[in-house]
């Protein structure tokens, strides 16, 4: 890529780099994992795959707790976390996300507790309550699964709805990339947890998720011109490359070695690690794009030039139209043009 020619104020950044730490990158991963785990758990529940259901609900719960932890930790004033529940704003993806997470958290939490109540030790203690406790698991799990896709994809809007050049520019791809990454990581969990007989759904999900994740990441890295550059250099590039290799390895393992527990586990770990690496790569690439004024100035200049040339063309066309109209008087043109003589 040729070095862009542009002006700046002593080469200083125009934008502020995000104050978000890696907590947010981790949250992107754990939120996605929670979402697809709940969806797998619900599917397993409906199709009678208890091992997958159990693992799904447990991993959703774990990922949910981690998500909340990292979200709150990243606040400048963690004790004021609840201030986010005093408003609901569609213009703030973080507000929307907080409500999604709250609703999802309630449902997934109930499903997890219900799952726990099936454990013999817990069941005995609950006595007569154990029946309802188990029964509530299905509706709660289904509710969590219904909210889950929103949880997995809103984070794409969270990043894209900023002035961070390489996040905002990627707003078309990010939701699909993140959905794919979530599916692949959930599938990774499923591959690890499910028995050989039950591994089908996780395996199919792994293929679909991996395809979306890889296609999305490729598109972000190769179709955004100058704004792809931060994803092609340094750490973000290495992370995204690692993500791609790990995804490919994980899918290959899931497809070819599905019969072996060890291969399944390794494939699952690969898919989980791939999702994590991809999220970090996307996160860090965006952060990089705020540090160099060229990612602000050059694309904006190009946009202005384009607008100008379009306006000029339109003016020319209008001009032409006017000239032809003066030759053939307007309103009469085509019907009864008077003969000049």
């Amino acid at each position: 890529m040729p070095e862009a020619d542009f002006q700046s104020y002593y080469g200083r950044a125009i934008l502020k780099p995000p104050v978000w730490k890696h907590d947010v990158a981790i949250y992107l991963f754990t939120g996605g994992l929670a979402a697809s785990s709940s969806m797998l758990a619900a599917g397993a529940d409906l199709t009678g795959r208890p091992a997958l259901r159990r693992a799904g609900r447990a991993s959703a719960m774990g990922a949910l707790v981690a998500s909340t932890f990292f979200l709150v930790k990243d606040l400048g004033r963690p004790e004021r976390f609840l201030n986010m529940l005093r408003v609901a704003k569609v213009t703030s993806p973080m507000s929307v996300g907080t409500w999604i997470l709250t609703a999802y958290g309630g449902a997934a939490g109930v499903a997890a507790v219900s799952e726990a109540s099936r454990l013999p030790a817990v069941r005995d203690r609950l006595g007569v309550l154990s029946g309802p406790a188990v029964a509530v698991g299905r509706p709660a799990g289904l509710a969590a699964a219904a909210i889950a896709p929103a949880l997995a994809t809103y984070t794409a809007v969270l990043l894209a709805d900023t002035a961070v050049p390489s996040w905002h520019e990627a707003y078309r791809q990010l939701p699909f990339l993140f959905a794919g990454s979530a599916m692949a990581s959930g599938a990774g969990m499923g591959l690890i947890a499910a028995g050989a007989a039950d591994v089908g759904p996780a395996r199919r999900l792994a293929v679909m998720g991996a395809a979306m994740e890889m296609a999305g990441a490729r598109s972000v890295r190769h179709t955004m011109g100058l704004l792809s550059e931060p994803y092609l250099r340094g750490r973000p590039a290495r992370l995204l490359q690692a993500g791609e290799v790990l995804t490919a390895t994980g899918v290959a393992g899931a497809l070819l070695g599905g019969r072996s527990r060890v291969v399944r586990t390794v494939s699952g770990i690969c898919l989980l690690a791939a999702s994590l690496a991809t999220r970090f790569g996307i996160f860090e690439g965006g952060v990089e794009s705020t540090k160099d004024p060229k990612y602000v100035v050059v694309p904006q200049r190009e946009r202005m030039a384009l607008r100008e040339s379009q306006a000029k063309r339109e003016a020319e066309l209008a001009d032409q139209r006017q000239r032809t109209e003066t030759v053939t008087p307007s309103g009469l043109a085509g019907t009864s043009s008077p003969t000049t003589g």
Partner: peptide, 20 residues
């Protein structure tokens, strides 16, 4: 952005259902 996120969410839901 919200439209695209909605679309991606739908794709994800269909994906999981079809996996089963």
């Amino acid at each position: 952005m919200w439209r695209r996120a909605g679309l991606a969410a739908a794709v994800m839901a269909v994906g999981v259902v079809s996996a089963f």
